[in-house]
Computed example of a mutant assay.
Amino acid sequence: MNSLLTNKTALVTGASRGIGKAMALKLADEGAAVVINYIKSKNEADLLAASINEKGGRAIAIQADVSKPGEIKRLFDETEQAFGNIDIVIANAADAIVKPLANCSEEDYDRIFNTNTKGVFFILQEAAKRIRDNGRIIVTSTGGTKMFFSETSLYLGSKGAVEQFVRVLSRELGNRKITVNALSPGFTDTDLLPERDRQVATDMSPLKRIGDPEDVAEVALFLASHAGRWITGQNIGAGGGVF
Rank of each mutant, 00 (worst) to 15 (best):
F122E: 05
P185S: 01
F83H: 09
K21H: 07
F243H: 07
G143N: 14
I236S: 04
N37H: 06
L101R: 04
D215E: 02
E44F: 12
N85I: 06
G135T: 08
N37Y: 05
N7M: 11
T6D: 15
R136M: 06
V162N: 05
S41Q: 15
R198T: 04
T232Q: 08
V66T: 12
V242Q: 07
I88Y: 08
K68L: 09
Q234T: 09
A49P: 03
A94V: 10
S16V: 08
T115K: 03
E78P: 06
A91V: 08
N2V: 08
G144L: 07
D215S: 10
V66C: 00
I231H: 04
V98Q: 12
L183C: 07
A10P: 05
I19F: 10
T6I: 06
T179Q: 07
K40N: 14
L173P: 01
E214F: 02
T145L: 01
V162D: 02
D108Q: 08
L183R: 08
G157I: 01
S105E: 03
D189Q: 13
R171N: 12
G239F: 11
R74K: 14
G237W: 04
I123P: 00
P69F: 08
I138P: 03
D197Q: 12
L154N: 02
R196Y: 12
F148G: 12
I90T: 13
R58G: 06
I88P: 00
T9F: 04
N7C: 10
G31L: 12
T9D: 07
G237Y: 06
A128V: 00
A227V: 02
A15I: 11
N85T: 13
V168G: 05
T190M: 08
G20S: 02
V200K: 12
T13D: 09
R130Y: 01
G237K: 00
G18H: 11
K42Y: 09
M204K: 13
D133K: 13
A217P: 13
D189M: 12
R132G: 10
D95C: 11
D203G: 03
A91Q: 05
V139H: 07
A224M: 10
I62S: 05
D189P: 01
L192M: 15
Q164N: 12
Y109Q: 09
G186C: 11
E54Y: 00
H226L: 15
D29H: 11
K8Q: 11
K146S: 12
N53F: 01
I131C: 05
A22F: 12
V34R: 02
D215Q: 05
S150M: 10
R58E: 14
D189G: 03
A220N: 04
S150G: 14
V35L: 10
A161T: 14
T117A: 14
K55T: 12
K8V: 00
Q164R: 13
V242T: 15
Q63W: 04
C104I: 10
K208R: 14
T115M: 09
Q125I: 08
G186S: 07
I112W: 03
T145Y: 11
L27K: 04
K159C: 08
A61V: 01
N7D: 15
A224S: 15
V200G: 06
E126Y: 03
F122M: 01
D108V: 02
L193M: 10
T79W: 10
M147S: 11
V89H: 08
A217I: 07
N116V: 06
G119W: 02
A161F: 03
N2C: 04
G228W: 02
K55M: 07
G211A: 11
L101V: 14
E107D: 15
I123H: 04
L25T: 15
S3K: 15
